[in-house]
């Protein structure tokens, strides 16, 4: 994890948070599956990577974890976004939009 840049970590955390916001409670496998689908397999990372993200988000209090039962009767750990997580997501999403807008413009300017 130490070699990965802060930005990538932050990006992954934001994606996990958004997924939980949109889909409701999910287990790690579900989140990883959803991320793969969304990115159309562009993000070629191991599914295990989501767990580091999940630990960080739990520690920050933005999501919480609970053992539950899956649809086909397997026990699995389910993650749920907390109200604080929602607030954080809104703020980060704003930031993201602003920054990506700036970066987009910057890249266009450079390529001109």
């Amino acid at each position: 994890m130490a070699t990965k840049s802060e930005i990538l970590q932050g990006t992954l955390d934001l994606m996990v948070l958004k997924t939980l916001d949109a889909m409701g409670p999910l287990h790690g496998y579900g989140i990883a599956l959803r991320l793969e689908q969304l990115s159309d397999r562009v993000l070629q990372v191991n599914q295990g990577t989501v767990y580091a993200s999940l630990v960080r988000l739990v520690q920050k209090g933005w999501i919480r974890a609970e053992w539950g039962t899956s649809e086909n009767n397997r026990s699995a750990k389910y993650y749920t976004i907390t109200p604080r997580g929602r607030k954080q997501l809104a703020a980060e999403a704003d930031d993201w939009a602003r920054i990506s807008g700036v970066i987009g413009k910057l890249l266009q300017l450079e390529s001109r």
Binding site: H27, G28, A32, G48, Y51, S70, R74, S75, A76, K77
Partner: peptide
Amino acid sequence: ELASHLEL
């Protein structure tokens, strides 16, 4: 948790 991930 990892075991349940694998099973799923």
